[in-house]
Amino acid sequence: MHQLHLNSFFTGRYGKRAAHLLMLVFTVAILDYSLGALLDYYYFKQQSGWLYRTTYALNETNAELIILGSSRANHHYHPDVIGQRLHFTYYNAGRDGSYLFYHYAVLKGILKRYKPKMVILDFGITEFMKNQESYDRISYLLPYYKTHPEIRSIIELKSTAEKLKLISRIYPFNSSLVTIVAGNPVFHMTKDGDKEGYIPLHNKWNEPLITYNSSECYEFDTTEIRIYKMLIQDCINAGVKLYIVASPYFHKLKSTECSILEGRKIAGLYNIPFIDFSGNEYFTARPQLFDDSYHLNDQGARVFSGMLMDTITGNTAGTPGMKLSGYTSSSSNRNK
């Protein structure tokens, strides 16, 4: 009886149904392949924008100093100040909403081509907090899966099915259509004003300082900690000077965030300087140096970059109101 039901299901219009299904699969495959190829072509033809900056960092830059990190890295390290002080060529590979996985992938891509003299990793105060978003944002790297085998293992951290999803040619460019159009000069869009990857912010924050009560330490993401250690180790192996920096915030914490403590501890094990400006009182007293509570504006970036350079070069005497927390000058000199 059961067999009979199945038979009746597959008889009659079986051929027509199978043909329709095949046509559907074929149409979707053709559309996916052709649109994906078109997106791929225009993605790598971009001349500006944040997608372009990732491509540039991975494929083209040969700067002596590389800045890695999220939006805070992107807006906090002023190329004029840093270039003037270190006499290094500079590229800022910081990208909005990115996490350690992305930073490490960019570093791997760069180290495959050449060895920069110095790398500054901007470290967020909740860097090791378990957060699904940090895995989701690995999607920034999907367009490079085919061409950059060295970062595949990082991309595959996104999910176990990532390889399978990448059968689709459109998938790596999901939600990128408008950005790709905007980044292509062929479409006559306005270029955004980056300077060696650095994007200045110009707003002046005028909200009061918020003090957060220290919370209990959260569960760390062990994979992120592993990636952090690998990033440090890769720099050491390549002979690249690495500075890990927690740049300023416009909010105050009653005690140091546990990610900062852990990040500093791990950096110490590898003799890597960890410079903590996250609770720096010079900045928390000056809202006018911020664009919002998380990001310095251009003026703030100049001030902070100057202070950072003072710290790195060991010249902290002339910095007004300067008070570094969580940093020992001896550790900063170890890696020089």
Binding site: T27, V28, N174
Partner: peptide
């Protein structure tokens, strides 16, 4: 028309791939 049906279904699948929010 099966052609219209197939085209419609294909377009929706492509739109999902192109601008769907997966994460």
């Amino acid at each position: 028309s099966s052609l219209v049906r197939i085209a419609s279904v294909s377009m929706v699948i492509i739109l999902i791939l192109l601008i769907g929010v997966f994460d």
